[in-house]
C-alpha cells in the first residue's frame, strides 16, 4: 500500500469512539464599537504606527516626509505614480534594496490592528518583508471588528497567498528584549485614507 493509503487506513482504524460533533461558531460581541479606535490601539500594541492623511496634503509628499533620508520608495498601491512600481522588478529578491514600500490593504481588523495583504495588494509578496519600512494605506471604512469576522470573508479563499500583518517584524528571542525588524520590515505605518486614484492595473489585479 502507498504511504497515503496506509496513513488514511491507520487513521480510520484508530478513530476515537464517540460522536464529537463539529460545533457551530457563535458570534461574540466586539470588544469595542469604535472600530477605528480599537484598530489603532491594537496596532500600537504590536509596534505599528497610524496616521490620518492631513487634509490638503499630497499622499506621496506625506509619506516621503515620514521617512527623511530614505532613498528608494516603491509603490504597490498604484496610487502613487511618482514612485517606481513594485511589480517592475524581475525577481522577488530584487526588492531587497527598497527602503520604503507602499501597499494598500484590502481591509483591517479592529480587534488586533491587523491588515489583510495578499498577492494582489503586494504585487510581489516579498515586498512586505524585504523592504526596510512598510507603509500601508487603509480606507477607514474597510474595517471589520474581529478576527472571527475576518475569517467569515471570502478574500482568503480567492488568493494563493494572504497575510494578516500586525505591526512590523519583531522578536524577543534574546533575553526577552523586544526588537522591531527581526528579519522583515523594521516599521509598519498605517495611513488612513480612502483610495483616491483608480489604477487600472491595481483594479484588475484586485
Amino acid at each position: 500500500m502507498s504511504a497515503r493509503d496506509d496513513i488514511l487506513a491507520a487513521c480510520r482504524a484508530a478513530r476515537p469512539p464517540g460522536d464529537h460533533p463539529l460545533p457551530n461558531l457563535p458570534a461574540f460581541a466586539p470588544a469595542s464599537s469604535d472600530l477605528r479606535a480599537g484598530f489603532e490601539q491594537g496596532l500600537a500594541l504590536m509596534g505599528g504606527r497610524s496616521f490620518d492623511l492631513p487634509a490638503g496634503t499630497a499622499l506621496g509628499a506625506f509619506i516621503a516626509a515620514q521617512f527623511p533620508g530614505e532613498r528608494l520608495i516603491r509603490d504597490a498601491s498604484g496610487e502613487l505614480p511618482e514612485f517606481p512600481r513594485v511589480d517592475a522588478v524581475n525577481r522577488p529578491r530584487d526588492l531587497e534594496n527598497v527602503d520604503v514600500a507602499v501597499v494598500r490593504a484590502r481591509f483591517g481588523v479592529a480587534e488586533t490592528g491587523s491588515v489583510f495583504l495578499s498577492e494582489s495588494e503586494l504585487q510581489v509578496n516579498t515586498v512586505g518583508y524585504l523592504s526596510q519600512h512598510l507603509v500601508v494605506l487603509l480606507d477607514p471604512v474597510a474595517l471589520v471588528a474581529g478576527i472571527a469576522d475576518a475569517y467569515q470573508r471570502r478574500d482568503f479563499g480567492e488568493v494563493r497567498y494572504a497575510s494578516l500583518m500586525t505591526g512590523p517584524s519583531a522578536t524577543a528571542d534574546i533575553e526577552g528584549v523586544l526588537i522591531r525588524g527581526a528579519q522583515g520590515v523594521r516599521s509598519l505605518t498605517v495611513i488612513f485614507c480612502p483610495r483616491t486614484i483608480e489604477d487600472a492595473a491595481a483594479r484588475s489585479a484586485g
Partner: peptide, 16 residues
C-alpha cells in the same frame, strides 16, 4: 506569548 496575534498570520494556498 500573551500578544493578541502574531505579527504575521500567513495563509498559503498555492505557489505564486
Amino acid at each position: 506569548l500573551g500578544s493578541p496575534i502574531t505579527q504575521y498570520t500567513s495563509h498559503f494556498r498555492g505557489a505564486r
